[in-house]
Amino acid sequence: MSGSPTIRLRGLSKHFGGVKAVDAVDLDVRAGEFFSMLGPSGSGKTTVLRLVAGFEQPTSGSVELFGDDVTAKAAFERDVSTVFQDYALFPHMTVLDNVAYGLRVRGVRPRQRRERALQALEAVQLAHAAQRKPTQLSGGQRQRVALARASVVEPKVMLLDEPLGALDLKLREQMQVELKQIQRNLGITFVFVTHDQEEALSLSDRVAVFNNGRIEQLGTPRELYENPASLFVADFVGTSNLFTDEHAVRLIGRQGAFSIRPERLRLVTDPHAGAGNDTSGGRPSAPGTVVESIYVGSAVRCVVDLDDGPRVTVLEHNDGSRREERVRGGRIHVVWQDDDVVALVPAAS
């Protein structure tokens, strides 16, 4: 088994009618990694997950788990556990019976499965709710039960389909931390489907960005953020200021679309008068008009209409100095460094 990846997808396609939901995807997921599939809705990420779990049969291509081809195997014959977006807890069973379900169908004795289910519930701090029905739990609690139910059978791979999608922001952030901890403690492979780029970046070892049923880019969060390979990735992962071919010629004097992250842009009133000594005249800059200046606590987000380019967003770290010069309609210069320019290849259409 050594050497073969935990999950290996080769030429995996799934068509629904005439729609190519998944289009010839090749992918290796390594043992023990937190792997995310990121993309907008309809990009094929959830279908890939369902193909791995065995809920869907591929139109063509193969799914391998731990080196074995499982393409023709049913869901119950695959050693993976799924956490569903809507949790899919059995409403007619107690929380304890839900968690014990996987052990029950594996023929574990009642006493032992009760014990192990309780342990799994303790791990998610829900042992006190063991005798309740799922409908009596809050969203966050149901989420934890679903996690306990999936993990109690000790799978080598856990598939998570937008598991935090239904939670409010605060709970979401809390659960993100817990998920990461659970994954580290269990030491198993997590395949995490999400449309939330921030979530994907903060949790994952590697991320695959999906678009139109294909993988647009695969890499570490840092690679995706710092070096997006296409317009689509630059736009979808994080906030980007996108510059088209035309803008490129006018602003940096060469062809090719590029992007610059908002936090890499700076604002100065006069680029030549040396507002701060480090600002040399050779630094690229572009004049524009302030459209909006929004105070967001840790930073000030400033929207500027460039005279020779698009509308850009500039994120200025809140260092305590008051920036009253950023008044709406005021003239300003946006400056950056050559290193911050990320050249883009157009998204595959």
């Binding site: 779990a53 065995g54 809920f55 049913a74 869901a75 119950f76 993976v80 556990s81 799924t82 569903f84 809507d86 899919a88 807890l89 059995f90 409403p91 379900y101 996987g102 169908v105 594996r106 139910r149 999936a150 059978v153």
Partner: peptide, 16 residues
């Protein structure tokens, strides 16, 4: 079909 998928996912065959 969600609940049935969850059941199969946890290792239960069709009859179970």
């Amino acid at each position: 079909t969600r609940l049935e998928e969850a059941s199969a996912d946890l290792g239960a065959g069709g009859w179970t």
